[in-house]
Every structure is written in C-alpha cells, then in structure tokens.
Design a protein around this nucleic acid. Structure first.
Lengths: 339, 339
DNA sequence: TTGAAAGCGCTAACAT
DNA sequence: ATGTTAGCGCTTTCAA
C-alpha cells in the first residue's frame, strides 16, 4: 500500500503539504497541488482511513441504524441515505437493530462507541429512554427519522395529519362507513406511527360528526398478508359493511385490494381503498395513497447530518422537529360513493 | 472518551496487558484478565477502532457491495449478511453500486482502497474485468455471491439447474405448452442470471423433445409489473396459448398470477405458474417456486469471509465455486394439465 | 505472564 | 505557502 511519504517524495514536498493538498484543508499553491495530485494519481495513493481518523478525529463515516433491512419502506429510506452520503464522499456503516435485545444493547454499548462514525442516522427506530441517552452521550450529531423525540434532532412526518388527509379524502367523496386497518391500541407503547395514524383517522371522523364504529376497525401487522386478512374480516362480516377502507400502509392496502377482489367487490365502484406510504407497487395497483417520499426522507437525513457536521463550530441550534412533506396521490382505488 | 491508559492505571497493569486481556491475543493470567475486564467495564472503555486498526492492520469491518438496496432479493441477502457479521462482532460498511458509472468507479478506486475493511462481499454484482482485477489488487479476502467468476471465490447457485428443476416440474405435470418470462437474449452480456435460467428452461424442453416456441417467450424486467405485462401478452395473444408459465423470478410470477386472474384464467386449473427465488409473498399467493434461500445466502457469505479471515495464515485454497442449495416448493399455483 | 517502547500513517500546531 | 514535528490511541515486538 503506497503511503503519504512516497507521494511526498515523488512530488518533492513534505507529507504535510501532501495532506493539505489532498484534503483541501489549509493553503497550497495551485502548482504544488497539481504536482501532488499527479503524484498521488500515478502512484495510486489513497489515504488510509484509520490513520487519517486517528490523527484528525474525523472518520468520514456515518452510522445508520435500521430496524429492518428487508422491508420495502426501510430499505427505500436507506437507499436514499446511502446514495446521498456516497455522493459526498462518506462511507456508511450499517447497524441492523434486530429483535434480539442483547444484540441491540451491544450496538449502543459497543459498536457505536468504537469511534468509527462521525454521526448517526436512526431510521424509524423507536428508541428507549436509555438508548436515546446513550446516543446523546456519544457526543455526535444524531438525526432520527420518525419520532418526534424532543431529546434528538428529528425529521418527522406528521402522521396524524397524514391520516387526516386520507380520511378527509374519503369523506369528501361521500363515504361515512369507513373502516380502518392499522395498529391495535395495545401497540401504543412502543410503536407510535400506526397509533398516530389511527388517531388522525378517528379525530377526523369525529370532526365530521361521524360516530365511531369499533366494528370497522381491524388490527394488522403492516404486511400485504395482514391487510388481506383484515379486509376479509371487515368485508365478510355480516352486518355493518364499510364503503371504504383506509389502511395505515400501502402494503396493507394492497392486501385489502386483493381481498376485495376475491370477495367479488369492484374497486372503486363498491369499495374505495386508500393507503399510506407511496409504495413502488402503488402505481401498478392504481392505489390512491398519501405519499411520504421515503427515498427523499433518506436523502434529507443524510444532508442534514452532513450539514450539521460541516457547521460543527457554529452554535448547534436545538432544533424543532423538522417536518417532512407528504402528498395525496389520487389514483383509481377511490371514488364517490352514492348512497 | 476513556482511553486504554486509564484502564491500565485503574487495573494497575500496563497498556500492553490491557490490550492483550481485552483482545484475547497473547497470554494473560486469569486474575489479571478479570481485573482488566472489571476496570474496562466500570470505566466504560471501548477500544478506538481507528487506533486499533492503525496499529494492528485489522479493522473488524467488512465491505458489502450491493447493486440495489430497495429490491427484495438483495435486501434479504444483505439482511442475512448483516446479522451474521454483527453476531461475530464485525461492522459492515455498505457500498451501493448505482447505475452512475462515475460513482461506481469511485467505489473501486477510492472507497474500497481506504483500508477501512478487512474483506469484501459482493452480492450479485456483475463485475467487469477491470473491477474484478481491482478487487483482487486490494489483496483482501473477497467472496462473491453469484458468478461463477473463476478469478474470485464465489458462492453460486446453479441457475441452469434451478430453471431445469422448475421446467421439469411443469413437464412432469403434463405441460408442454410452457411459456417463459425472463431476460431477453440481448441482456446476455452483462446480466447472466436470467440468461442461465432461460437456458435451463430451453435445454430442458429440448431434452424432453418439446419443440421450442419463440412465441411463448416474453422478456420482462424482473418486477411484478413487468411480469404482469408479459403474462398479458402471452395469454392475450390469439393463437398459441400456454398452459403454464415459468417466470424467472417470483416477483414476475406474482405479476403473471395477477394478469391471469384479470383475464379470467383460473390458476392452477387453466394455467400453472411457477417462479424462482423464495419471495416472502410466495406463501401468501400460494406460489409454487424454486427457493434459493436468499437470507441463508447472505449468512453463508458472511461466514465464509470470516472463516477465510481467521484462517489467514493457512494456504488460501483457490476454491471451486461453492454451490448454493435450492429447493422446489410446490404450493398451489401448479397442477396437472389434462388435455 | 508482564512491561517498555517503537511504531502504525496520518494531521495540525507551530515555525519559517 | 511550505516544512518540522509531536502526537492520535492503540498493538506488538522484544526483554525481563
């Protein structure tokens, strides 16, 4: 492996100058910089990250925490983060927080403390108090997507408002028998997003003067299959039959669509279906949804953390949770209901 | 950040002993080791990865190359890799090779050469000759999933045999009008997997004495939507109508299933459908498939590279491509065809 | 089994 | 604008 000394010798300068020329920190004359760059290129020199990190305290590496790698939403956010970080020359070290408590502890207690990263992005992780504290103690910039968590800088989509928008869309089309597939109240404690969506739904109904109908709520696990099963229950039960289903994720909405078809419902003539997320299959299924632009969320988080890193001297403002955009995308699974 | 000196002082030993006790390299008496461990724990000491890497030349970090982060197959393999590496105390640095040629070059020329990783796992990447060479020049263990590439250690599933198995399944059920949705021959140059699958299909038909029917081949892009469109073509065209469809991926097979339903075909009574991969939705759609266990593939790659790293002294055998297992999973989308 | 000390390859003061 | 040099925090000989 060619080292900085060889480059210095080749270019006829000191190692300090090589370092300055290549890193862009400190002043180097254009002529010298050119010589150094040529030398580095011809010798095939690339800085050793460990030596550089040890000396400078910067790693050019961001740790990214994800709860799942193999679910569409998370891998899409991650994809956005990865490309944005790479564009700016940063590496990304991936920590997949599994259900295994012990392994999860080790991420916070050991992995993240090895001084391998300059900052941390937590993608839609429900952090415990202790974990939040451990993150803060790293004394590194941290950006969390999700939350809001008052103790951390967060990028947050207003899930209550998102659900409100979806619900209002259905109400404005004339629906009042609206079913909801989402989180059951028991989950409230450690998974807030679905709960917020359910709250947005319920409040919007209340605001519109539509009485709550417990029978039109069905819990599910955010998978296609879960949505399918929930919709079968909702549509198959004798008695109160919804004219619209609001699923708390697109994957569940797709499951509901499939269930409706199997039961002989025409969508949207007999039944309207709306989801949340902006899933890649939404277009294919002509699904009406509230898009939350997950790819862009990942990119934003990357940009936010790098901005924070590069403005490290300026007083770090204790930030309000930054709001993430969302948008109603009306496709072909929702329509007017004429009673 | 507490350093090794503080631990040494606290435990009343030298830094060398702390290093030995904590890393497990070299001999330390049990009593001393216990003292050091206590000291480290009470002080909250965690070794600095850059200092350790610089001094030892080992990073405890594996670079993982993936072509896509947001496609089910790749993120599932990655998930397996990530959990296996983490279990063994290794970090993982993620390199997402995008379509951007320039960015892709920079991964090989810069990112991977920063001495940040002890080894590289390449997940289903079609590597160019130059890229293969650059990987070899890193002088690091490299494991590629896919290939086979004679210049690299690979874990390879025999795609020709996989396709043969799927095809034989259909033939054994009495089908002879079998359509294939897969890669068009033009892709042959830089994406081998679908091509191998097509070859396995064609050879098996030939071996069974079934004449090739160009009209029963339809190219698609490995997405649900692509499979849907291809199946619509296949099933909607007047004239030769297949009794079975073999899709080169489960996602395309699911698309085909949806298309068949829309056109009023009953599956499997009127049409059999088989895919490849072992997609998580396969169970839900009752899809017959040839599972290639992507999660396990990722774990295997992780184990393989760590084994190679930890046996670094032993002569590194230039290996045969190691074969990955696959298995026919018969569910409910295939059935006998009685003419 | 343990300690002393020489690096590992850089960066950043400090000088010039 | 450039060079000299003292670390950065470990690991690993080498000696004891």
């Amino acid at each position: 492996m060619v080292s900085i000394d060889e480059v210095a010798r080749f270019a006829g300068v000191s190692t300090a100058t090589v370092s300055r020329a290549l890193s862009g920190r400190g002043h180097v004359s254009d002529a010298t910089r050119a010589r150094v760059e040529t030398a580095a290129k011809t010798l095939g020199y690339v800085v050793s990250s460990s030596a550089s990190s040890l000396a400078s305290g910067r790693t050019r590496n961001i740790g990214v925490l994800v709860p799942f790698l193999d679910r569409w939403f998370f891998s899409t956010v991650l994809s956005g983060t990865a490309s944005a970080l790479m564009r700016r020359g940063y590496d990304i070290t991936l920590y997949n927080l599994t259900a295994d408590r012990e392994q999860r502890r080790s991420v916070f207690e050991t992995f993240l403390r090895r001084q391998r990263v300059d900052g941390v992005i937590a993608i839609s992780i429900e952090l415990g108090d202790e974990e939040t504290e451990q993150l803060r103690e790293l004394d590194l910039p941290v950006i969390a997507i999700g939350g809001p968590n008052p103790r951390l800088s967060t990028l947050t989509v207003d899930d209550v408002a998102v659900a409100r928008l979806a619900t209002e869309h259905l109400i404005s089309l004339g629906h009042s028998e609206i079913a909801h597939i989402g989180a059951s109240p028991e989950f409230d404690i450690d998974f807030h997003i679905p709960t917020h969506r359910r709250q947005g739904f319920e409040r919007t109904l209340a605001d519109a003067g539509i009485p709550p109908r417990p029978a039109l709520f069905e819990p599910a696990d955010f998978t296609v299959e879960g949505g399918f099963r929930a919709a079968k229950q909702l549509l198959g039960r004798p008695g109160e039959r919804p004219t619209a289903i609001f699923a708390a994720s697109d994957e569940m909405a797709i499951g509901a669509l499939l269930a409706a078809r199997e039961l002989g419902y025409r969508v949207p003539e007999d039944l309207s279906v709306i989801g949340i997320d902006g899933h890649e299959l939404g277009e294919f299924f002509r699904l009406t949804t509230v898009d939350q632009f997950p790819l862009a969320q990942g990119e934003r988080a990357a940009d936010a953390i790098l901005d924070e890193l590069e403005a490290r001297d300026a007083a770090i403002p204790r930030e309000e949770p930054r709001r993430l955009p969302y948008e109603l995308i009306v496709r072909a699974t929702t329509a007017r209901f004429d009673r």
